[in-house]
């Protein structure tokens, strides 16, 4: 019983992985790709690992550590990527209306190649 419930929870998680990949392909610029990539992989890996934890109750502790780690670090890496993308927003052709951060900086952009 545990096995089959866990397998279906993992299947739901892998659907979110697929969703994030489709989002990466369809979205028009790096910011929007990040939106799809970060959110969908976070819930996807939570469900996928939780499903494995349900299938193998002995491993549940490790899965909880991995889930907490992913929930804490995935937004941090997307934040670092968003700052990098904002430094090169004109070169990568990001459409941002309004752009409060550029207004705050007076429209400066990083100089080196992205």
């Amino acid at each position: 019983m545990n096995e089959i419930v866990g397998a279906f929870v993992s299947l739901a998680g892998s659907l979110f992985f697929l969703l994030s990949a489709v989002g990466l392909l369809r979205m028009p610029d790096a910011f929007n790709r990040m939106q799809a990539g970060t959110k969908a992989t976070t819930l996807g890996s939570i469900l996928f690992l939780l499903g494995i934890g349900i299938m193998k109750p002995d491993w549940l502790g490790r899965m909880v550590i991995l889930i907490v780690f992913i929930v804490l670090t995935n937004p941090v890496s997307s934040n670092a990527l968003a700052r990098a993308a904002h430094a090169h927003r004109k070169r990568i052709g990001a459409r941002l209306e309004p752009d409060a951060l550029a207004a705050e900086d007076g429209g400066k952009e990083a100089g080196h190649a992205g």
Binding site: L19, M27, F31, N32, E97, D99
Partner: peptide, 12 residues
């Protein structure tokens, strides 16, 4: 993502 016309209007 799955909407055919991508309903987005991004900004900061």
């Amino acid at each position: 993502v799955l909407h055919p016309r991508l309903p987005i209007a991004p900004g900061i």
